[in-house]
């Protein structure tokens, strides 16, 4: 039962990262690409980290996974903000 949940989480995470890459190729302008490049990879990493945490199942791993998620979720919007700011300056 555990194996099914972990497999599902890892597959869903990889799928969301692939969706982000497809969106990066398909969207027509920079800001729409930023939409795809900010949300979907963070969610994919969240799912994969959850799956790997459940797989190893020790307290240290849960702590490190929590750190990864905090970093990602604090920094992904900031990175998008920095990229959009540097683009707007140009014109």
């Amino acid at each position: 039962m555990d194996k099914i949940i972990i497999s599902g989480l890892i597959l869903a995470g990889s799928f969301f990262i692939l969706v982000a890459a497809i969106g990066l190729v398909r969207f027509p302008d920079l800001f729409s690409r930023l939409h795809a490049g900010t949300k979907a990879p963070s969610f994919g990493i969240l799912l994969i980290v959850l799956g790997v945490c459940l797989y190893f199942n020790t307290p240290v791993i849960y702590l490190k996974g929590f750190f990864i998620l905090i970093f990602i979720y604090l920094t992904a919007p900031l990175a998008a903000h920095a990229i959009s700011r540097s683009f707007k300056q140009k014109d």
Partner: peptide, 11 residues
């Protein structure tokens, strides 16, 4: 706002 559907905070 950056994480909700279809909005990205800019400035």
């Amino acid at each position: 706002l950056s994480m909700t559907p279809g909005s990205l905070s800019m400035d």
